[in-house]
């Protein structure tokens, strides 16, 4: 039976400016490109990755400008467009003052009380 994995992403905005992306969303996208059956649950501060209109542009160090700042909402959207389910923990979003309309289309809301049910759908849970 093919392996099915849920990547839970919790740590957020950790070196995203240096990396120009979130490395776990990146690796999930890369694994899906290699045929992996892997979905994502955004929890904790990572729920903010789903917020529309994030703008990390404009960094400049001396004369050196950052030319490709991270576009995390786009990266979430790309995963959804590639067929991944991307869940967002509604309790954590609400705790951070987020409304459903703040979030990109295609995110699947899930409440904390339903994480146990969600985990049952996957062979392995990788918490990043």
């Amino acid at each position: 039976m093919a392996l099915k994995v849920l990547n839970i992403v919790e740590s957020a905005y950790r070196a995203t400016l240096e990396e120009q992306d979130d490395t776990i969303l990146w690796t999930t996208t890369a694994m899906r490109g290699a045929g992996a059956d892997v979905d994502v649950l955004l929890r904790g501060n990572a729920v903010n990755y789903g917020v529309r209109g994030q703008d990390a542009s404009g960094l400049q160090f001396g004369e050196r400008k950052q030319t490709h700042p991270p576009r995390l909402d786009n990266d979430v959207k790309r995963l959804i467009d590639k067929g991944a389910k991307v869940y967002v923990l509604t309790d954590d979003a609400a705790d951070r003052g987020l409304e459903p309309t703040d979030l990109v289309d295609g995110l699947e809301p899930i409440s904390r009380s339903n994480i146990g049910k969600l985990c049952a759908d996957y062979d392995q849970i990788w918490h990043w």
Binding site: A2, L3, V5, E10, S11, R14, I24, T27, A30, M31, G33, A34, G35, A36, V38, Q124, W126, H127, W128
Partner: peptide, 22 residues
């Protein structure tokens, strides 16, 4: 290697444990 190697290993292993950073 690349994330594709991690996936290939995960598929062929009895189990996988991710120990993330914070």
């Amino acid at each position: 290697g690349s994330p594709a190697d991690l996936w290939q290993w995960a598929e062929s292993s009895d189990n996988t444990l991710v120990i993330p950073t914070k």
